[in-house]
Every structure is written in C-alpha cells, then in structure tokens.
C-alpha cells in the first residue's frame, strides 16, 4: 500500500505547475525516503530532478518500492481541482498499480473529493548526475531571475550568463538589438532579496532562453533560486520546496562551433 498525505495541496499544485510544461510524462519513484522524479524534456536538452522527502508529508506509508508512470498534464488537471488549503492524500496499491487516487479534503471537512488517474508504462532511462564542484554558485531572488529571463528573451533566443566576483551578468542580442542585466553581490547576505556569489573561478556560458523560462515556472515555490555554473557543463537551477525537498533543473549549454 502506498499512501502519502500533505496538509496543504498548494505545494503539490505548484510542483506540478513547475514541471508540466517541460515534461509530458515521468515516473514517480516512491520509496521509504520519499518521492523522486527524474526526467528529460522531449528534446533531451534539459533534465528535471524532483525530490519530496517522506518526513515532509503529514502521513507517509510506502510498504514496497513503487514506480508510477504519470502523465503530468493529467495530474496537473486533477491538482487544479483542489483548493490550496485542501488536505491531499495520494493512494495506490503497491503491487504494480495501474491507477492512483487523489483525495482532497476541505479544511472544514464539508467537502471530500476523490479522483482516480490511470497510470502509464514509461520506459525512460535514469541518468547518472555526477557530483560537481561548481566554479560559481549564485543565490538570488527567484522573481528577479524570472524577470530577467522573460525580459531578455524578447531581445534574443540565447542568454549569456557570465559570473565573476563583481557580480553576475545576463546578456542577449538579436535583430532588435542587445540587452544586459548586471547584478552586483549584495552586502546583507541573509535578506530574501540578497544576491550572493560563491566564486572559485569566473565562468561564461550560453543557454537557450526558452528552457530557462520553463524553469522559472517553479518561482512560486521559493523566494530564492540558486544557479550553479562551471564552463562547458550543464547549468543547475535549484528551487527549494519548503523544508521537504527541492526541484533541480539541469540545462545543457550552447557550445560555440
């Protein structure tokens, strides 16, 4: 038997909204430790790695390891049927289930709804993500990052991110012209709108804006975003999910010919 409850449906709704436009389907791997999802987008340019730890659930029971093939658009539709304050319970039989149930209970207990979703057989490879010591790790307000990716995408398809000890610079150019946004490291590091940079060595990388604008769909999950960069390897964009997990987006860089 697999059964997991969250006191508030809001967090799960935001998680689905953060991945449903980038991924069509994914395997939800359920174990004692929690729920993990790892999947590439269709073009194999980006990879999403999601983790929801069991101790972050109000109730969590996973008698046997379980893999559920989920169509994310369908799950997002079901999640949108819940109110943010509803308690949500996910239930599935653990001997190779072909469906999963979602039960939403309103906070005043007057409304209980349940949705059953068919599961799919998804034979997706799992990728090994090597541990990496990044040259630059930048923490910044997630709304700021979302704003930059959205604004600069109007000027060009590619975003050049260069990071040094002075700060982080986002640049683009196209038919319209060019645009640059420079953020200096802030002094007061522990405020929510702080920009902090841990730099081992300067980096300059180029990425396709469209993927970054998919990643920023996770902005409602966290007020901060962390960008980890080293030359010639994928960018890591990380949003924490409360104190129960995180969502990591990896984006392969554009390499000069």
């Amino acid at each position: 038997m697999f059964e997991a409850s969250l006191a508030q449906s809001a967090i799960l709704k935001k998680v689905l909204d953060a991945i449903k436009d980038l991924l069509n389907e994914a395997n939800f791997e359920c174990t004692d430790d929690g729920i993990k999802v790892q999947a590439m987008d269709n073009s194999h340019v980006s990879l999403v790695s999601l983790e929801l730890r069991s101790d972050g659930f109000e109730k969590y029971r996973c008698d046997r390891n379980l893999s559920m093939g989920v169509n994310l658009a369908s799950m997002a539709k079901i999640m949108r049927c819940s109110s943010n304050s509803d308690k949500v319970t996910i239930k599935a039989q653990d001997d190779n289930p072909d469906k999963v149930s979602f039960i939403f209970e309103s906070s005043n207990q007057e409304r209980i709804s349940d949705y059953e979703m068919k599961l799919m057989d998804i034979d997706a490879d799992q990728l090994g993500i090597p541990d990496t010591e990044y040259s630059c790790v930048v923490k910044m307000p997630s709304a700021e990052f979302a704003r930059i990716c959205k604004d600069l995408n109007q000027f060009g398809e590619s975003l050049v991110i260069s990071c040094s000890k002075e700060g982080i610079k986002f640049s683009t150019s196209g038919d319209l012209g060019s645009a640059n946004v420079k953020l200096a490291q802030t002094t007061d590091a522990d405020k929510d709108d702080a920009v902090t940079i841990e730099m081992r060595s300067p980096v300059t990388l180029t990425f396709a804006c469209r993927y970054l604008n998919h990643f920023t769909k996770a902005t409602p999950l966290s007020s901060q975003v962390q960008l980890s960069m080293s030359d010639e390897i994928p960018l890591l964009v990380e949003y924490r999910i409360g104190d129960m997990g995180c969502i990591k987006y990896y984006l392969a860089p554009k390499i000069d010919d």
Partner: peptide
C-alpha cells in the same frame, strides 16, 4: 554561432 548540446552528452544513462 553556438550549437545546442544535449544533456545526454553530460549525464550518462545508468
């Protein structure tokens, strides 16, 4: 111009 690389050239299938 710059060419988009694939994530699978950095992360190997298990």
């Amino acid at each position: 111009s710059s060419k988009q690389s694939s994530i699978t050239s950095f992360f190997k299938r298990k």
